Simulated scan of single mutants.
Amino acid sequence: MKVKTKSKKLNKAWLNEHIHDPYVRQAQKEGFRSRAAYKLKEIDEALHLIKPGQLVVDLGASPGAWSQYVRRKFAPKDAGTGGAAVGELNGTIIALDLLDFEPIEGVQFIQGDFREDAVLQQLQGAVGDRPVDVVISDMAPNLSGIEISDAARIEHLIELAIDFSQQHLKKEGALVCKVFHGSGYSQLVEMFKANFRVVKPIKPKASRDKSAETFLVGIGLKSA
């Protein structure tokens, strides 16, 4: 009984924090599917990665807040307007996730597991011969709580994202990946440094303080 009571208190505390979270409220007000949009927004405003006319691949896209942010960046800014959630689009967005994805106008979605060769081939087919400007990855494995096992799962996803970037990114392109501080973090930083000329770790204000989540950004591929 004590465990259940404690669990209820934790759930209630999380719900209360979620409801009063300024980023959750802002997301609801501005029509974003989750507060995650503001994490990418902060990263983009710091590094100026997303520009109209680009090809962007969004890995781990569901529920779609990052694709929404990119889509609005691609909306033409004629006569001082821009940032539209619908209508004309100057750029290409390809999104992939294992989970369902409510359609976003102008976003091509592929459902499947990025770790499976058949799904990866489908994504590569959608990209074709076009060089990718930016790969954004909010992918995270289902965490078991076993630190060594979780670190290996995270590293595997990062390796796949880097490998995809090596094959498809423009020479001056960028990769943004969600990672976690803890076991294996320093190895992930070294992996980025081995593949990119510039590596920047960023902890957006929109990431909750108590979360171990952070982001690594690699810019400019090193020669193989």
Rank of each mutant, 00 (worst) to 15 (best):
Q166I: 08
Q166W: 10
Q166V: 07
Q166T: 07
Q167D: 13
Q167I: 07
H168F: 13
H168V: 11
H168A: 13
H168G: 12
H168P: 09
L169V: 08
L169R: 03
L169M: 10
K170E: 12
K170N: 14
K170Y: 14
K170A: 13
K171Y: 12
K171C: 03
K171S: 15
K171H: 15
K171L: 13
K171Q: 15
E172Q: 10
E172A: 10
E172N: 14
E172C: 04
E172K: 07
G173Y: 00
G173W: 04
A174V: 02
A174G: 07
A174T: 08
L175T: 10
L175Q: 08
V176W: 09
V176I: 15
V176T: 11
V176Y: 05
V176S: 05
V176L: 11
V176N: 09
C177G: 07
C177S: 07
C177K: 04
C177P: 04
K178E: 06
K178V: 01
V179H: 03
V179D: 04
F180C: 08
F180L: 15
G182Q: 12
G182N: 14
G182T: 11
G182A: 13
G182F: 15
S183M: 12
G184W: 01
G184P: 06
G184Y: 02
G184T: 07
Y185I: 02
Y185D: 02
Y185P: 01
S186T: 06
S186W: 00
S186P: 02
Q187R: 02
Q187F: 00
Q187L: 03
Q187S: 05
L188G: 03
L188R: 01
L188W: 00
L188Q: 11
V189F: 01
V189G: 02
V189C: 02
V189E: 05
V189M: 01
V189R: 01
E190C: 00
E190P: 02
E190F: 00
E190L: 08
E190H: 02
M191P: 05
M191A: 07
F192S: 00
F192K: 00
F192D: 01
K193I: 00
K193G: 00
K193E: 03
K193F: 02
K193W: 01
A194M: 06
A194W: 04
N195A: 12
N195P: 11
F196H: 04
F196A: 05
F196E: 03
F196G: 06
F196D: 03
F196V: 05
F196L: 07
R197N: 13
R197P: 04
V198H: 11
V198E: 12
V199N: 06
V199F: 06
V199W: 04
V199Y: 04
K200L: 12
K200V: 11
P201N: 15
I202G: 13
K203L: 14
K203W: 09
K203N: 10
K203P: 12
K203Y: 15
P204A: 09
P204V: 14
P204F: 08
K205L: 15
K205M: 15
K205S: 14
K205D: 11
K205I: 13
A206P: 15
A206C: 10
